[in-house]
Design a protein around this nucleic acid. Structure first.
Lengths: 173, 173
DNA sequence: GGCGGGTACTAGGAAGTCCAACTATCGGGC
DNA sequence: GCCCGATAGTTGGACTTCCTAGTACCCGCC
């Protein structure tokens, strides 16, 4: 039984999919397998990370936002810049900050000069929580404990190429 | 401007995060960077795939379910087995099938002998749509066009290790 | 000095994912 | 033959994400 209560398969479902893909003449399955693998990897890693953070009332998304503020000057940042750094939609930032404010981990502060802008600022409680949770995540190796450092670097390296080509940032400078 | 209307950064946000992580003595950042990279890769690839499928009224989740049925005997499968293959929660299967039924791509059929079980069966329309969309996805290389075949295999290979260690299937047989 | 395009954020809604709890059914053991 | 644990699926709720549309505000240009 796995975490969803269903029976464990005795074969690799992704290799099975590749065989079917090829058998129907849809292609060699290389890209399909890679894309599907990334999806599963995300699912697995996120589940482990969230399980570690759940006792503290956090999710990975919320932790990422808190950590970004922790690293920022005065522990504060405009919501728009948060979205740009984390690569999430403006409405997602609003939604995340809403919940963090409700948990008193963050507070909304008006920008001193630009009245359009709202700053999210880490509270004392929020700052303490980030420190605790970062240690927790290091302890579980961010869900990647089954890979050694060299394998982890390989994953990051290939994905950097992918992100670069997708305009995650401007690397021409 | 990127797809969210925010300004493009002139540095790699993940490398920035690694530097901050190290600077605060939280660890070497290897696992953090790998986990974050996987998250972004998922986000990038999924966005491209969904953009390609949107004109056909599909998402990657829905396509995966349809493709699985296409590959199955009689184009049908119990909902529970669908969840086991795609590694998603039973309630997600219910939800996905609901929408596919609403779009007449799938129909719910009672199991002939086990009255607890419901089968999802591909309709004619559904089967045609899968074929069209698989070609579309091959055409955009599943969002991985910026990686060559060797890089794609490298991603899949490392992730296979991760999935194996996470009990995605029983590889001891 | 005000007009208008661009910027910053929020509101409402859809989709996908998970969990906990519930109903219906199956099947083995007494 | 019946009970009771296991199995299959659904319902309701929470969360994250996206999109479209809207309001408030800034600032350069006429």
């Amino acid at each position: 039984m796995n975490r969803y209560g269903s029976t464990v398969l005795n074969f690799d479902p992704i290799e099975e999919a590749r065989a079917n893909w090829v058998r129907h003449g849809w292609g060699d399955g290389t890209a399909m397998v890679a894309a599907t693998s990334i999806t599963r990897a995300h699912q697995i890693v996120l589940a482990k990370i969230n399980a570690a953070l759940a006792p503290h009332g956090l999710t990975f998304s919320r932790f990422e936002l808190l950590a970004l503020l922790f690293f920022s000057k005065a522990h504060e940042l405009p919501l728009g810049k948060i979205g740009a750094r984390l690569q999430v939609h403006p409405t997602s930032v609003t939604s995340l900050v809403d919940r963090l404010v409700a948990d008193a981990l963050v507070e909304r502060v008006p920008h001193p000069t630009d009245r359009r802008t709202t700053l999210a600022r880490l509270t004392q409680v929020g700052a303490s929580l980030v420190a605790v949770c970062s240690a927790e995540l290091e302890a579980i190796d961010f869900g990647l404990g089954s890979l050694d450092a060299e394998q982890q670097e390989r994953v990051s390296g290939v994905i950097t190429d992918l992100r670069d080509a997708s305009g995650d940032w401007d690397s021409t400078g």
